[in-house]
Amino acid sequence: MAQLIKDGALCENSWVRVTPEDAEGIPANGDIIVSLSCWLEQKEALKNHNGKVAVCLKPGQEPAELAGDLADLPMIAIDFPVFADGRGYSYARELRTRYGYQGEIRAVGDVLQDQLFYMWRCGFNAFDIRADKDASEALKGLNDFTVTYQADARDPRPIYRRQPE
């Protein structure tokens, strides 16, 4: 069953996450998500990979590390080892607003229904829902609120710039 929510709908996940511990190393083909260290070490080789390549940022790894590579990356994954570690929210926001990143930003790891609305507002557009949860249920989390006070990655206007003057 699909665990991926992208742009507001469930969809199949073509991407494989490659961790540094993987004994087989990087697969020859297919869309892969590699760690930041893997990307920084093997960037040139990875550009010739037969498939798309994305990088996963962990908490403590800031978007600035990828500032020069954003045009080469169709997707950046941001890992939530535990959902209560909120650094990823600032990273996504920064990618969208500081760097103007237009590609996919995907939340991976401990990704759950009750955080989706905040994540979406911070610029995530894809959510790889934790494997033991029902992603079709989690999808509802995107619609928790119709009102927001602040500017966000979706709408740069805080509420006081959305009201007619």
């Binding site: 209560a84 909120g86 929210y89 955080q115 905040y118 911070c122 609120f145 927001t148 006070y149």
Partner: peptide
């Protein structure tokens, strides 16, 4: 209050 209420970036400080 309004800025901090459900501010999406600062819910998990």
């Amino acid at each position: 209050r309004q800025w901090s209420t459900f501010n999406p970036e600062f819910a998990y400080l």
